[in-house]
Computed example of a mutant assay.
Amino acid sequence: MNNAHTTTKAVASAQRCGRAFVRRVAVCCLFACASLSMAQANSGDKERDAQRIADAQRSQQQQRQDTQRQFEARADEQRRQLQAQQEQNAQNTADAARRGGRMMTPDERRDLRRQINEAGVDIYRNAPRR
């Protein structure tokens, strides 16, 4: 009987030892999987962070380029308007030079009409009758 008891005790001890070993292996596997998933998550975060930074830099650069284009477009428009004004002023000056250099005031026109009437000369011909 002594042998049977020892054998039963050894089997029970072996089973406990085996279960403990299986538990230890399971816990180790669990920790290994957790650490692998953490490592992958961290590397993914770094990649995502790097991607976000690159996207932000591209966005800022695009905004700078857009701002520069808008500034250049406004400057071009202002140059065109200034040039058009200068051309209009030059044309007005040329028209004024053809007309005698300057406009007459109402008093000057009245004096000129009076002088013409005193001289008795018609400046404008009478229109032919139809």
Rank of each mutant, 00 (worst) to 15 (best):
R69W: 08
E77C: 04
T93V: 09
R23M: 04
T7F: 03
Q65V: 07
S43L: 11
R79T: 04
R125T: 04
A10D: 12
M104F: 07
R79Q: 06
A73W: 04
Y124I: 00
P106W: 01
C28P: 00
A12S: 08
C28Q: 11
D45P: 00
A14P: 00
F31A: 11
R24F: 11
A12E: 10
M103I: 05
E87C: 07
Q78D: 09
Q60N: 13
F21M: 04
D95Y: 05
R129S: 08
Q60V: 09
R52L: 13
A12Q: 11
L36D: 03
R69E: 13
T105P: 01
R80L: 05
R16S: 13
Q86R: 12
C17E: 15
I53A: 11
M1H: 06
G101N: 02
N3A: 06
N89V: 12
R16T: 13
Q70N: 11
T93I: 05
Q62A: 10
D76E: 14
E118R: 12
S43T: 14
G120Q: 07
P106D: 01
G120H: 02
V22E: 12
D111F: 11
Q85S: 08
R129C: 07
G120D: 03
A4H: 03
A84N: 10
R48E: 13
N126F: 07
R80H: 01
L82H: 02
N89P: 01
L30M: 08
N117K: 15
A39H: 00
S37P: 00
Q85F: 08
Q91K: 02
M38L: 10
R58D: 01
N92R: 14
A90W: 03
R109P: 00
D111S: 04
C28M: 06
R98V: 08
R64L: 10
A54V: 13
Y124R: 04
R19N: 14
R80I: 03
Q61C: 02
D55H: 06
M103K: 09
R64A: 08
N3P: 03
E47A: 14
D107R: 14
V22K: 15
Q81G: 00
A12F: 03
R79Y: 00
A14H: 03
Q62K: 15
R125E: 08
D49T: 10
H5C: 01
Y124F: 14
R58P: 00
A127W: 09
F31K: 12
A54I: 11
Q61S: 10
N126V: 07
R48N: 11
V11N: 06
Q81F: 03
R129N: 09
N126L: 09
A12H: 04
Q60E: 08
E47K: 15
N117E: 13
E108D: 05
R99S: 13
R58G: 00
E77I: 02
S13N: 09
D122R: 15
Q86C: 02
Q60K: 12
R74H: 12
Q83I: 07
A94N: 06
R130L: 12
N126C: 08
D111E: 14
A41M: 05
Q83D: 04
M38H: 02
C29E: 10
A10Y: 02
A75M: 13
N2Q: 14
A50S: 05
K46N: 12
I123W: 01
